[in-house]
Design a protein around this nucleic acid. Structure first.
Lengths: 205, 205
DNA sequence: TGACTTTTGGGAGTCACTATCAATTCACGG
DNA sequence: CCGTGAATTGATAGTGACTCCCAAAAGTCA
């Protein structure tokens, strides 16, 4: 896994480091203020001030206020997990296992868990954030379509494939909503399993 | 089906009539301007002016600009169709038939078709409108949960039930997106059938 | 017709977000 | 270690959706 010298990810040292720091500082400040005063009552200026950057900088890092909440570093994990599934495996099994793997990965990092939980609480309470989540899930759908289409040699636009993905993501959405509605107390993996069982067996209940 | 005299829907004559007229005028003006200049380039002031009302009035009728596009009169149709299904019928069949019935109803009215098509075009091109559609589909999900829970004597919050609904609506969303992506040329009913077949058979393809 | 209620218009204000430009900070070869 | 070029930042001035508020207008009903 040696990297070529000119990676597009880690360009030049100090600059990139500071950027990541700023990004984190903004997120941290935002989460703190959201927790203290609520999402709507927190102005972007306040977040900027708390993070010790200018308002313009906040918008340079996050295109919208909702994006401060939803950064979505899970997509690459899901994609990698799905690509790692054996070629012969039926799509639903592959997707199910990839989702399980993603949950496992997230749970392996305590701070990641904390972040996800904070995020989900905002998803529940703030409609705008929820809307943004749906949008990002749609993007995830496009991504999954690409990967699954490549696996089976079909077109990523084929209706049957998209329906399959749409149904699965719709189910996943309900899992997340159910989870957060009950105060994140349930075991996410179990909820996911129950949901995927519904999809696998027969949807006719 | 005779109605009690004091319906909350049609309160008093002239007032209500004018309201409906204003509502329509705003929508008509908005659709026209959106078509001519695009959604983003159309300011709410312009819509107000074209509809010959004040800007405040526009916001009194529609809480957001996106809501001018999405009014969703289909929900009651869907609900009625679902309630009309025989009690013994398995949920997926009932929901499938209810959806078919809804599509049929919409297609029975040419102007309704025109409206839906215009709406869908904006859903495709404007992210904000699409987000609003997702939100309204979530609300539809809550509605369906109530009705289906009542049918089977279960709780509307039960995960399995919500997953079932979420998956179906996810599939429906893909149908709509597929339909609009191909310029609304396909037969919507056929697309719906193909999608429901995917859900019914096995999602494993 | 006249009192009462609902709806409307207009104005002032808030806040997320954009565009722009000068100042600062970092990268890197000499 | 220094100077030049590139990336990043901050400040400022917008824009436009949306809210609040109040006085004028219109509809309702006795």
């Amino acid at each position: 896994m040696s990297r070529p010298p000119a990676e597009p990810t880690a360009r030049t040292g100090l600059r990139e480091l500071k950027k990541q720091r700023t990004r984190r500082a903004i997120r941290r400040a935002a989460y703190r203020l959201f927790g203290e005063q609520g999402y709507d009552a927190t102005r972007v200026d306040q977040i900027a001030e708390a993070a010790e950057v200018s308002t313009s900088t906040v918008f340079r890092y996050f295109p919208t206020k909702e994006d401060i909440v939803l950064t979505d570093e899970d997509d690459p994990v899901l994609e990698a997990a799905l690509r790692a599934r054996p070629a012969g495996e039926p799509p639903l099994t592959a997707l199910r296992e990839a989702l399980r793997e993603t949950v496992r990965t997230v749970y392996a990092s305590p701070e990641w868990v904390a972040e996800v939980e904070q995020r989900m609480r905002l998803v529940r309470s703030v409609p705008a954030v929820r809307a943004r989540l749906d949008e990002s899930m749609a993007a995830t759908g496009d991504l999954l379509a690409e990967v699954l289409a490549a696996r089976t040699g079909r077109s990523p636009d084929e209706l049957e494939l998209r329906v399959f993905i749409g149904a699965t993501l719709g189910a996943l959405r309900e899992v997340l909503m159910h989870w957060v509605a009950r105060g994140l107390r349930d075991d996410l993996m179990s909820l996911l399993d129950r949901a995927m069982d519904v999809l696998e067996h027969d949807l006719a209940d």
